[in-house]
Write a protein that binds this DNA or RNA. Structure first.
Lengths: 337, 337
DNA sequence: ATGAAAGCGCTAACAC
DNA sequence: GTGTTAGCGCTTTCAT
């Protein structure tokens, strides 16, 4: 069966294409009678507007891309959920782009060889340098998520990582722990995320008159519970002794819990543990994970606000916004008695 | 700065639009010299093809939609990861659609008021009836994922749920467990997924000369670890005694583990537990979760194959394909000694 | 409030 | 191997 076009509806309804278009898009100034007639024709013919044609005519796609390394990481999955909902409320659909934390993939995202695929981009880089990001095509509104390098020309939303890391660390200190370790930074090529969290970890220790012991910093090969479990297991086996671990993220925390248990130690009795992201399962593991909880809702709304400004033509300097966080205290590092 | 069009490139390169188009799309029959000239012009002008225009001209968008209830559920997040990768390899981008298991949202997905947004749809329904799905617009190639109702006119990919549930159940029986419960089916409005898994559970019990004890079936309000923990906790508190639980999914299993621990019992010593989906964290919880692992890679490739057939014009009856699964044995229900 | 016609930027016949 | 031209189906001035 042949495709039904706007023109067909117009002919059947006995009006012009413009009028049909007005009805389809809920343009207010259409007489009730005309609207009725047009709607009958639409129903009778089973007409559906062709999105591609509309996109070409308007120059807008109604879509934004959400790019990050890997949706299967719980934090990104939960972020994607919120983005899809919030974007939907603003009339946007979400295109999913995974980079696998690969530099080339990230470059492809930012310098897409094609134009007009999406109206804007929400991007959490993992590898690209700030300088490279600064050179991205100016025709694609962009908001960066997370704490990796961001040029001053580009908008960005993140939480205060050093502050949050210091809070988590002080929480362990308040529990009387003194030999604190850190788990989950990269073995090589330290990310800015890890750098900032380690900085907060260090400042809190120093604020308590303690020093960071490099021997207690447990790097991991990748962002995964498995990798953290291996690394922490190896550290403990090699004689590393700690009474608390600040973990870079909840996956590292979950892996750390496992390694600690396998070493025959107890959480939090022997080793207290904090995570980061407050993923949904953090409250349901055994023990549950005390975690830094970013205000993801605020993060996403702020990011979409910034993007909306850019879509609206704003082209000032990049705005770098901090959003809130809190430490959610659970069993792995309980409240001070 | 004004947008650069194909025509501009053609003028600068001194060739026709057709030739530029050929170069852009890597059409083979272009002389090296011409190609070189065109590419210089493209680089000089910073030309990027406009996707919307191409979509309108070709009638293809190069995008497929992936629709299910909620990306933040680990199974769907992991599925989305595989879909995005596999689709990418086939030249498709993925549009994310969440239904929140809401009937109206599901209807919207299937009867999108607009045409030409995506070339095809991968959809895991949770609420729609088979009859309703059968009436979907014929102009949108569709492949269903999962075991919910599927009309014979539509393609669908799933695993053999009763068989897998029976395997999990027999695994518990082989461990000597005799009072087996089931966790995670819906309190009301039993889904087909739950129905099939319960059927396998029952058949395995009956195969061992046992009967299902309705008192040991623990329904949950929603698909979440929290909901399962509450329901199982309440069941145990009310005096329900079991030595094994087959859980509808890994989230239910994780919540069940937690509830069992809170009740002062041990897993698997007192109660052995199996989950379903083999989500990434199933191997890292404490104890790790024995789980039914669907072959997600095969599921996705098969679904994309079926979709490709439809995109290629195939319009025969729906093909219903079963893909493989296996029981991954871990600590929550270990191997028989 | 509605109509007529000119694009939006690309692809695809069909020529040459 | 390359050029010409007519759409793809919609939105949008500009009239009326």
């Amino acid at each position: 069966m042949p495709r039904v076009r706007l023109e067909d509806v117009a002919r059947v309804a006995g009006v012009s294409m413009k009028t049909v278009s007005n009805v389809v898009r809920d343009y207010p100034h259409v007489s009730a009678a005309t609207r009725q007639r047009v709607e009958s024709a639409i129903a009778a013919l089973g007409y559906r507007p062709n999105i591609s044609a509309r996109q070409l005519a308007t120059g807008r796609t109604g879509m934004i891309a959400l790019a990050f390394s890997d949706v299967s990481l719980p934090y990104f999955a939960e972020l994607a959920r919120v983005v899809a909902h919030a974007a939907g409320e603003r009339g946007f659909r979400v295109l999913l782009e995974q980079t696998d934390a690969d530099l080339d993939r990230e470059r492809q995202i930012l310098s897409a060889r094609e134009a007009g695929l999406v109206d804007g981009l929400l991007f959490q880089p993992a590898r690209m340098s700030s300088a490279e990001i600064a050179e991205h095509r100016q025709d694609l509104p962009l908001v960066l998520l997370g704490e990796e390098s961001a040029p001053i020309t580009v908008d960005r939303v993140m939480i205060d990582n050093p502050a949050a890391a210091a809070e988590a660390t002080r929480h362990l200190l308040a529990l009387g722990r003194r030999r604190l370790g850190f788990v989950g930074h990269e073995v090589s090529g330290l990310s800015r995320t890890s750098t900032l969290r380690l900085a907060g970890f260090q400042s809190a220790l120093e604020g308590a008159g303690l020093a960071v012991d490099p021997a207690l910093l447990v790097a991991t090969d990748e962002i995964s519970a498995r990798s953290a479990a291996q690394a922490v297991g190896a550290a403990l086996a090699s004689g590393v002794r700690v009474d608390g671990f600040v973990c870079r993220d909840d996956l590292a925390a979950i892996g750390t819990v496992r390694a600690v248990h396998e070493a025959g130690l107890r959480v939090p009795h022997d080793i207290a543990i904090t995570g980061w992201d407050d993923i949904s399962l953090a409250s349901m593991t055994h023990p549950s994970i005390t975690s830094v909880a970013p205000d993801v809702r605020a993060l996403v709304e702020t990011a979409l606000d910034l993007l909306a400004d850019r879509l609206g033509g704003f082209d000032g300097l990049g705005r770098h916004q901090l959003i809130g966080h809190r430490l959610v205290v659970r069993e792995s590092a309980p409240a001070v008695a």
